[in-house]
Each structure stands twice: as structure tokens, then as C-alpha cells.
Design a protein around this nucleic acid. Sequence first.
RNA 1: GGCCCCGUCGUCUAGCGGUUAGGACACGGCCCUUUCAAGGCCGCGGCACGAGUUCGAUUCUCGUCGGGGUCACCA
Length: 538
Amino acid sequence: MTIRTRFAPSPTGYLHIGGVRTALFNYLFAKKHGGQFILRIDDTDQQRNVSEALQPILDGLRWLGIEWDEGPNKTENPQPNGYYQSQRNDKYQAAVDELLKSGFAYRDFAKPEEIQTERDAAVAEKKTFTYSRTWAAETEADVKKFEADGRQGIIRLKMPREGKLVIHDLVRGDVEFDWSNEQDHVIQRTDGSFLYHLANVVDDEDFQISHVIRAEEHLPNTPRQIFMIQSLGYHLPEYAHLPFVAEPGSKTKLSKRKLDKYLKNKDFAKLVNHANAIAERIGLEINAADFNPVIVDFYRTVGYLPEAIVNAMALVGWALDDKTELFTMRELIDAFSLEGVTKGAASFDPAKLFAFEEKHFLTKTVGEKVKLCVPFLTEGLSHFLTKDGDRSSEWCQDTEIYFSQDEMLRKLIGYAGERIKVAGDILDFIDFFIPDEMLPYNETDYEKRIKSVPEALPLLKEFRQLTLLGFDAGDWTHQALEKLAMDFIAEKGIKPNALIFPLRVATTGKSIGIGMFEALELLGKERTLRRIERTLQR
RNA sequence: GGCCCCGUCGUCUAGCGGUUAGGACACGGCCCUUUCAAGGCCGCGGCACGAGUUCGAUUCUCGUCGGGGUCACCA
């Protein structure tokens, strides 16, 4: 049997992190077994612009490396009617007609308030609501009568009222339902449009889906789908209901709308603050609704590695063994199995995701890191240089040199080592690329390391005059500089920090960063002296 | 409320009758160190509870409690 799985997003305008996990598991399972992964678009109830709302989802999946074999934007698609539910109405109509003909569905003329009354009564009696079928049309005469009353018809499933259904779920084992608890669900609306459950069943049959892998919130509505499958004589797919992705530190389903609440979680806040800082430095308008860690784009925007997201999400509700944590997509495909899927809801852990990012970034070569960082550096620099408005173009021209210092960037990334965990972190080191006369000082550091230390400036001045000024620019390496400084420190009989802190603030504007002498090496003699001079005159 | 699902450190999990209950992330401490990261070492911390079954239960059964999902002319 060919394994065929599908991910069926509704075009909502964004790719939810929980959706990623579902898509990923479907993808992994299909690839593992040499099958196909299909992308189908559930847009039966879509008012807005579908292609616009779908694009971020397609982009997000592609970015993550979850590529579909059939679906939108594919040149060769076997399905003549396409993969959009909105384009498949003929198929759905045929299915409804058949259900009607075979007696597994009926036309119903109840008014919404009449249904509601029955439902309220059931709730009051603490019983399962079951529609009385009072307004069900048995014959054409019934139809005429109801229509004469001004009633509008819909199509309902005529669900069994006795017996049991056992679903053999690949994750949960056998799950038993009583048919009597099932309702006569609507499958076609007054306006003739179709409902999700019907469309879903028809599509899965047409696309020959072998395994339905989806979040567990779908488990309660599986019986009605199986009822349709059986009534229409379709093949029954295998089911695997995944635990859903929960809020950090909770078992409640993760939701895009609860960001405020999540921000109270320390790890979540850390993740968001870090990302906000990057976004700010590239001049991005931060809109909390869209710039949200529940949405995949958030990570892409600040430079996370797609493989980190994939790795982290693969381990939400799945594990290979008791030790393997780091996976590439290829390794995931090889290792994945539905048996490894856990049953309990699994919290999304921002700290763990960040840890994966760190580890995956570490595996990149300097060359790869440069490639990843350049767009952020470019954005950050142009934002930094133009935020003062008028002067912008002039400043940009004057400082064009700073944009094209490949060699410096390369060295910097080497020296920065694991301080850069996300491509956007390169912006922590933007100071190396900006004109010396524009270097901003961290005022707290300046106060603490220079202003409030009387000997700081004299020491700096002396170091500059006696040591740096006469030092051969050709020997301007961090090793030579370090020796130079240490000799100076020894001679003066001071602690290293007495010189290094003021020097650090003077040359980089702040008291944290890469190794002091590596920093001076990158700056070069001329710029180092200029920055010190500027501080002395401040 | 009806129906269904779930329950191992704070979090993600390994475990599939006998283990000092293992790992990862986070957290705390120490070391290293010119700052910040990183790294090394150490530590904190868990089988929801109660009955069975069994020589023996984290593991099997039942119950209790707790958490969650779902009950649309949404998907």
C-alpha cells in the first residue's frame, strides 16, 4: 500500500507552530515510508482573499523544508479538480446526493431556534442531545409542505441511534463511541455550500489518503466521518490522533490570541524580548498580533534556523529514545514512527526551542554563518544610518565602506563564537561596522567604567600615547596587542580590568562583547585611535 | 453538563513487572576567565491518590482526584 498523508490548513494568514508539528509528522511519516505528502486547502468557508491568506502558510512550510508532493503551486498534480476545497463542489454534491439516495442523509427543515430549544432541553436533563427529526422530510410531499411554511432546508446525516463504533487509533489504541451519542450533523447548508466533515471525507477518498494524522481535537468528530465513509463505501484510512501542542507550563491548547498571558512565563518573555530587540534594530514595526512566537514567521524574521524549529517541534509529542535529541530532517525521517508518539498533551517550551537553535547554529561553518548574518547586518546598518532622516543618504554614501567589509565580518563571526545563536544576533556587533564618530555609548557602562573612575581617562590617554600610537599597524593582531597591553599593565602595576574596561567602553561603546584584543584587531589601528580620541574628548 | 482523551522532575521525555527511575532544557553552585557568551564539574527536582492482581508494581485492573478536548448551517 502506498502511504499518503495530508496536511489541510485553512487559509488563515499565518502558520501556527502547532500546525507545523502536525504537518511535520505527516511529512515525516510519508517520507519514511516512501509515500506522498499532500497539501490540501480547507477553504470551504472562506470569505477573504484565499491566495493572500495562504501564502504565509506555503512560505512557512517551504522555509522549514516541509515540501509537499501534491497541492498548490505544483506543476504536476494528479487531481483534476485541484487541492482547494472551494473548487471541488461537484464532488461534494455528488456525495451528498448519494447519501440522500441511500438514506444515510435527509433534508431537514427545522429552524435554528427549534433545534436550540431541543438542545437546551437535553442540557437541562443532563442528557446527550439527539435531534427529534421532527422537521425531517421523508417524502417530496413533506418537502413541499415545509417549504410552503417558509422553511429552508439543509441536509443532515442520518446517524445510527444504537450500537458502538471502535476506532483503532495508531496512537491511542481502541477508542469506543456509542452511536447514540452522535448527532445528525449538517453536511450541506441552506445556501448549498458544504461543511468541512463532508468535504474532508470526500477529499481523503479522492486523494487516496492512507493515514489521517491530525491533532487529537479531531478525535471526537471522527465517528461522523467514519459514518460517511462507511455509508459511501469509501476505504477507511488509518487514524493517528496526536496530542496537541499546549501552552508553556500548561495543558491548554496553544493559541495565538493569548500572547499577553504567555508573556508572564519567564522563558517566553525572554524569547520575545530577544526577538523584539532584533526586530527593533532592523527597524521592524512590531505588531504584537503578528509578531508572535506562536507563529512561525516570528522566528524567520529574527534569523532562527528552520532546522532548529523542525527539531524542536519534532520532539513535542515524539521521542526516539532516551538520549537522541539533535536531529536533521533526514535523520527525523529515518527515525520517525507513530509508535514513538506520546499521548499526553505536550507544552511548547520556548527555552528548549532556543537551546535547539543554539545547537544547530553551532554546527554551521563560518561561511554559512556569514551568509545567514549578512541580511541582518545590512538591514540593521541601513536602519541605524537612516533613522535620523535627512542626513541619511549622505551618511550612507560616506559610509558605504562599512557595508562591504566581508573579511571583517568573517573574522568577527569567528571571534564572536557562540555569542551568536540566532542570525539576528550579529546586530549585537553592529558597532564594528558603524562610523567611529557615530558610535553610541551605553551610558550605564560609560558612567560605571569611565566617568566614575578618576584614573580611567588618564590611563587610556597614556596607553594611547605611549603604546598604541607608536605601534606598527602591520603587527596589529590580537596576540600582539594583548602582549602590548599586558606589558603596559604589568609595568603600571595595575589590574587588567583597570585598563581593559575603559578601553572596551571607549572602543566598542559598552562593557560586554568579544575579546578585547580581537575587537581592537578588527577595528584596526586608525579606527581604534580615533575611537579612543573621541572618548577622551567627550 | 453529555461524550471522549490524558496524568513520570518546573518543561520535553526514556521506561513497556524486579532500574540507586535515565537523559535533555530550565534553574542553583563551583571552576575557567580582561567583560559577555561558551565550556567543565557538582547539585536541586518526579512516578497524582487509593484499592486490588502479583513473591514484587512507575509499569496490569478498577475507583478517586486532577488536567484537557469536543459538543456550530467553523475548520
